[in-house]
Design a protein around this nucleic acid. Structure first.
Length: 439
RNA sequence: GCGGCCGUAGUUCAGCUGGUAGAACACUCGGUUGUGGUCCGAGACGUCGCGGGUUCAAAUCCCGUCGGUCGCCCCA
């Protein structure tokens, strides 16, 4: 009889990242930071369930949805009955669809413009690679209004994002750029050119900067665009002076005017922080106006770390109201992964404790507990050592966990308490109710 | 869904013209009496991803499979 038990060797699950305590602590700092900025603009928080019904997710429809559907994870019981009539559930792959559903469902109880932020995990069943996960966090911020949503908000979104991204701990050296465009411009042009398969053309324009000029032209030609049309599209997406643009029709002119307004409102940002870029169109079909995409200037190939845009009527599939919105989503995990792998995360210790109270001997246990409680009541985080091990061991523990102070209760009655600063090695007498850490 | 690369101790890897395994770091204990980071010593840890084939003999060669990773598609 073998007493060797079967070991199931733990392996990472591709695309489902997890962090060590130090990294998690940095991650929490980022969440706190982002939350603080969102709330400073008056946005409230909501959290929706991890799942939506498959019907709710599919409701958005459109042919742009077809590809996304392939990435949706569905949820079912292991031993489900074939005749099961339960609604099929799916893990949400973004936070925009849940927001639309939420807004429709709670329409009567919400105050409009409804300004909310949401920081949750989303799931996408695609092949993971660098900066791409199957389970990851997004930090979304959106505004939804009834009937009419002022352009004011289209300009507020990038301003908020810039404030966050330029001040996240660890992002100090990163050079990022928010690229902004307006879909009405390209759509207007395509309509003036009498192009019908706009979704295909949009996709091609979206990848224009990743492929060569020849490939780009060939793709457009394959989709039936004339030489004249190709030239006009190329000129448009290369245009850097949007104020000089003339609309070929009403829709295109509207897009130009909107984009000019938004850029004008962002003129207070540093040079190059937010730029008008007509080659940005975004793949998702529900965007109808302003669109955003954010990249590392030095490494645009890493992908967008923050994208979004305006959608004329997203909740229209869930309620018979006209609810335009505009929003943007920080690709939190992608961004975090980038800074983490470059070793630029803020240095944090393993333990959140400020003080470790040592246990000199079993008789001192009550005193140790009492000191710890006193310090906690003063707002400090305090660990107590669990057994009267050699002090060498107890000190080494504090050292490894990065706890900055070690507290020594008296070794015998009548002796004073002492506290040691682990960084300087200095050790002094102290009284728990009066003591404060330096710095 | 499709291609390239990879799969050996907890981790990073070495070993691969075939003869059943090593290093570093991490871990545990020790270097006596109440104090960490350094140093020294000792110890524990692997059916070499899994299955099959070739061979007297395979971590090492071949096939399959699973997993990881990078790229494509698409996207944060």
């Amino acid at each position: 009889m073998s007493n060797k038990k079967k070991i199931y060797k733990p392996t990472p699950i591709s695309g489902f990242p997890e962090w060590l305590p130090q990294e998690r602590k940095a991650e929490q700092q980022w969440f706190d930071h982002i939350r603080r900025v969102f709330e400073s603009y008056g946005f409230c928080n909501i959290e929706t369930p991890s799942v939506e019904t498959l019907d709710a997710i599919n409701a958005k429809g459109g042919d742009g949805g077809a590809d996304v559907d392939k990435e949706v994870y569905v949820l079912e019981r292991l031993h489900k009955d074939d005749n099961d009539k339960e609604a099929r559930l799916a893990l949400h792959f973004d936070q925009t669809v849940p927001l639309a559903r939420y807004t429709a469902q709670h329409f009567n109880d919400l105050v409009f413009p409804f300004k909310r932020y949401q920081m949750q995990r989303v799931w996408r069943g695609e092949r993971p690679q660098s900066g791409r996960f199957r389970e990851f966090y997004q930090c979304d911020i959106d505004v939804i209004n009834v009937d009419n949503l002022p352009l004011h908000f289209d300009a507020e979104m990038p301003a908020i994002i810039w404030e966050i991204l330029s001040s996240l701990p660890g992002m100090e050296d990163e050079n990022i750029k928010i690229r902004i465009s307006n879909r009405k411009i390209l759509m207007g042009l395509l309509s003036a050119l009498e192009v019908e398969n706009t979704t295909d053309i949009t996709r091609i324009v979206d990848k224009a900067e990743k492929i060569s000029k020849e490939q780009f032209e060939n793709l457009l030609a394959e989709h039936g665009l004339s030489q004249d049309a190709q030239t006009k599209i190329q000129n448009l997406i290369a245009c850097t002076d949007i104020k000089s643009l003339k609309g070929e029709n009403e829709l295109m002119q509207e897009g130009i005017d909107e984009l000019c307004f938004v850029m004008d409102q962002l003129s207070h940002l540093p040079e190059g922080a937010a730029v008008a870029d007509l080659s940005i169109v975004r793949g998702l079909d529900y965007y109808t106006g302003t669109v955003y995409e954010t990249v590392f200037v030095d490494d645009p190939g890493y992908g967008s770390i923050c994208s979004g845009g305006r959608y004329d009527d997203l909740a229209g599939h869930y309620i018979n109201k006209h609810l335009p919105g505009v929003g943007i989503s920080i690709g939190f995990s992608r961004l975090f992964e980038r800074i983490r792998t470059q070793n630029k995360l803020p240095k944090t210790s393993i333990s959140p404790a400020h003080v470790l109270v040592v246990l000199p001997n079993e008789d001192a246990r009550a005193e140790m507990m009492s000191v710890a409680q006193t310090l906690r009541e003063k707002g400090m985080n305090v660990e107590t050592f669990h057994s009267p091990s050699k002090l060498k061991r107890q000190l080494a523990y504090a050292e490894k966990k990065g706890i900055p102070y070690v507290w020594f209760p008296p070794f015998e009655d009548g002796s004073p308490h002492e506290v040691k600063n682990m960084e300087t090695g200095e050790q002094t007498e102290a009284v728990a109710k009066d003591w404060k850490p330096q710095s």
